[in-house]
């Protein structure tokens, strides 16, 4: 078995061994190594420090580092598990693993819930849902009147909030998604199925044999 620690380029803050990350996620060692190539690219796009900053994520998502977006902010916050303002390699791989086609659906449902739970209260509230619809309108060409927004939010909220207590809890969310599976379609990235084949430029010479 080779020694990954011999590569100086991999001495970056938050770097974790691909073997460990592969053991904890649906990724193989080769795929984790391919993800490291992607991580290096993203984490050096503005500040070359081996960490993904919020502006770097925004640049990758929008090709514009100044394009602030509520949902990109939420993605960043959820990936930044340590809450230290940057995404480290281990956080990147573990968070992306939820988007793997083979990841448990329950994990995808839970991750999406946290995305929508803007204020981290453990519930999705009506005001949060309205704020997100308004944010979506702001970033798109879609134009809706205030009355239309209220109607969409009311209708969606009533469908999901089956207990009628004015907020959507994780159980209600799970049930709602099971009836509307398209809601978590964006929680699966087919690219991750075999990133080493889909993105040949990311393929690096693996120093560790995959255990599969």
């Amino acid at each position: 078995m080779g020694c990954l620690c011999s590569k100086n380029t991999k001495w970056t803050p938050g770097y974790e061994e691909p073997t460990i990350l592969a053991a904890e996620t649906p990724f193989t060692v080769s795929e984790v190594e391919a993800l490291y190539e992607l991580f290096k690219k993203l984490s050096s796009s503005i500040i070359d420090d081996g960490l993904i900053h919020k502006e770097e994520l925004q640049l990758a998502l929008f090709k514009n580092k100044n394009n602030r977006n509520l949902f990109a902010d939420r993605i960043f916050d959820l990936f930044d598990v340590k809450r230290n303002g940057v995404i480290e390699f281990g956080e990147f791989v573990r968070s992306l693993s939820v988007f793997h086609p083979n990841a448990p659906v329950a994990d995808k449902i839970a991750f999406a819930f946290r995305l929508y739970d803007l204020r981290n209260t453990g519930f999705i509230e009506r005001e949060e849902l309205k704020e997100m619809v308004l944010a979506l309108l702001h970033e798109s060409d879609l134009i809706l009147s205030d009355d239309d927004v209220e109607m969409i939010v009311d209708k969606s909220f009533k469908e999901a909030d089956t207990t009628g207590d004015g907020r959507i809890d994780p159980e209600e969310w799970k049930e709602f998604v099971s009836k509307n599976p398209s809601l978590i379609k964006n929680m699966t990235l087919p690219y991750l199925k075999d990133i080493t084949l889909a993105f040949p430029s990311f393929v690096v010479s693996s120093e560790v044999e995959d255990s599969e």
């Binding site: 509520l70 944010a135 979506l136 469908e159 509307n180 398209s182």
Partner: peptide, 26 residues
């Protein structure tokens, strides 16, 4: 589809900020 008949969550899920496939674009 008439947006008013759409589900708010479905609408939101189409945000570019939630489209992580962009991360893989070269």
């Amino acid at each position: 589809a008439n947006p008013v008949s759409m589900n708010a969550f479905e609408l939101i899920s189409k945000s570019q900020g939630l489209n992580l496939s962009s991360l893989f674009e070269k």
